[in-house]
Amino acid sequence: MAKTILTVDDSGSLRQMVAFSLKAAGYDVVQAVDGQDGLNKAKEKTVDLVLTDQNMPVMDGLTLISNLRTLASYQKVPILMLTTESSDEMKAKGKAAGANGWLVKPFDPKRLIEVVQKVIGA
């Protein structure tokens, strides 16, 4: 059974590119348009990996991670940030919030899949 990845980004084109890359590698993808939408969808179904942007309306990525980590079902689920933010300060905040990794946009699909496979397997 294919593993499911929740991808959260307010940019439609970015979500489309992420979903395309992950589906081509054999993963199921759930998409969310902001942190709140991501949190709602994560509660509906526990996914195998969360891939989230940082700067989004309604709820940003760091807040989403903090909220997810309070849920028992998301204590161990890997969460990766995929964002244009590249400062060490932001990465430290991400780590403190509970992120397992930080990917700076634009992503190379091949490297994205390599990281995802490393974190949750094929």
Partner: peptide
């Protein structure tokens, strides 16, 4: 400023 990209290369990856 949240975008610091200066060229067309892909971004870095850090796993914690």
């Amino acid at each position: 400023k949240s975008v610091n990209q200066q060229d067309l290369s892909s971004g870095d990856i850090d796993l914690f």
